[in-house]
C-alpha cells in the first residue's frame, strides 16, 4: 500500500528553507552565467537520443509510433545536439547554461546547474568558472583535476589491468612495484609531477604535461591533481575535473569531442549545495 504522503524513492521535494535555498543557488548561478556571456537553454524532458553507458539507468518507453523515447537522463547530450543541429543555423553562440533535472531509473531525480561550451578547448576556464560558482555557496570546495588518458596509457604501457585504476585498487597498483607509478600514486600538487616526467614515456609525459599546465592555469582556492584517477565517464575523453566539498562530490566537468570540434561542459549537483 502506498501512503498518501509517500513520494517515490529518489524523487525530490522542496519546501520552506530548502526551496528558498535552491531558488537562491539557481538564481545566483544564472546571474553569474549571464555576466560571463552565457545564454540559457532548457531542453525537453522527453528525448529520442538519450544513451548512457549504464543503459539500464535510462527511463525509456515508446511514443505513439513505437519509437523509443526516454526521460532526460543526461542534459549535455541534448543541449549539445540541439545547439549544433537545430540552433546551429540561427546562432553562433557557443556558451550555454541550463538549470534542469535529469532522471534515472527507477525514480531518481538529480537537479543540476550546468554549462556547455562548444568549439572550445580550454578546460581551465570551465573549471575556474565552476569553482567561482561554488565559491558563492561554500568556502571549502576543491577542484580535483585528472586526465583520463594517463591511466589508459599506463595500463597500455605496463600491462596493468585498467580495472585496477577504475576500481581505485591502490594495493594492486603498488604491487606492480614501479617507482614512477608509486610516485604518481602520491601526487596531489601539480609541482609533484615535474620530477616524475623524466621517468616516463614521451606519450605519458605529454599527457602529464597537459595535466600540469591545466592545473597551473585554473583559478580556485585549491586544485588537487589526481593523475591516476580513472572512472567510467560518459563522454569526457581527456581532461576532466570534479569539485569536492569535504568528501562529497558537488560538481563534475570535462572536455569531449563535440559535434564541431572540441567542447566542454560541467554540471553542479544542486542538492549537494542545498545541504551546505
Amino acid at each position: 500500500m502506498i501512503n498518501e504522503f509517500a513520494i517515490p524513492q529518489g524523487s525530490k521535494l522542496y519546501f520552506g528553507a530548502n526551496a528558498k535555498r535552491k531558488r537562491f543557488i539557481e538564481n545566483r548561478c544564472v546571474e553569474i552565467f549571464y555576466a560571463s556571456g552565457f545564454e540559457e537553454i532548457a531542453t525537453p524532458y522527453f528525448s529520442y537520443h538519450q544513451t548512457l553507458k549504464q543503459q539500464k539507468d535510462v527511463i525509456a518507453f515508446s511514443d505513439i509510433a513505437n519509437h523509443r523515447v526516454s526521460l532526460r537522463a543526461d542534459s549535455s547530450q541534448d543541449v549539445v545536439r540541439l545547439i549544433t543541429k537545430r540552433l546551429g543555423r540561427s546562432t553562433e553562440h557557443q556558451k550555454w547554461f541550463y538549470v534542469q533535472p535529469v532522471f534515472r531509473y527507477p525514480t531518481t531525480e538529480i537537479h543540476q546547474i550546468g554549462a556547455e561550451w562548444t568549439s572550445h578547448d580550454n578546460i581551465c576556464e570551465a573549471a575556474s568558472l565552476c569553482a567561482k560558482l561554488l565559491g558563492e555557496f561554500t568556502q571549502e570546495s576543491a577542484v580535483q583535476l585528472g586526465n583520463i588518458t594517463v591511466p589508459q596509457l599506463i595500463a597500455k604501457e605496463t600491462g596493468i589491468d585498467l580495472a585496477h585504476f577504475t576500481d581505485h585498487n591502490i594495493e594492486a597498483l603498488t604491487a606492480a612495484d614501479i617507482p614512477w607509478l608509486n610516485a604518481l600514486i602520491n601526487v596531489t600538487d601539480a609541482d609533484e609531477l615535474v620530477p616524475i616526467m623524466d621517468q616516463v614515456s614521451d606519450a605519458l609525459r605529454s599527457a602529464l604535461t597537459k595535466l600540469y599546465e591545466s592545473a597551473k592555469a585554473i583559478t580556485a582556492e585549491r586544485v588537487i591533481v589526481t593523475p591516476l584517477y580513472h572512472t567510467e565517464l560518459e563522454y569526457y575523453d581527456e581532461l576532466f575535473f570534479r569539485c569536492l566539498v569535504g568528501n562529497r562530490s558537488v560538481a563534475m566537468g570535462g572536455a569531449y569531442a563535440g559535434e564541431e570540434g572540441r567542447a566542454m561542459g560541467f554540471a553542479i549537483y544542486t542538492d549537494e549545495l542545498i545541504s551546505e
Binding site: 580535483q144 581505485h168 591502490i170 596531489t188 584517477y229 569536492l244 568528501n247
Partner: peptide
C-alpha cells in the same frame, strides 16, 4: 581484513591517508 578509503577522502586527504 583490508584497509580501504572513501574515494573522495582519498582525493582530498591523500597525504594523511597514505
Amino acid at each position: 581484513a583490508h584497509l580501504f578509503a572513501n574515494q573522495n577522502s582519498f582525493v582530498t586527504r591523500k597525504k594523511e591517508i597514505l
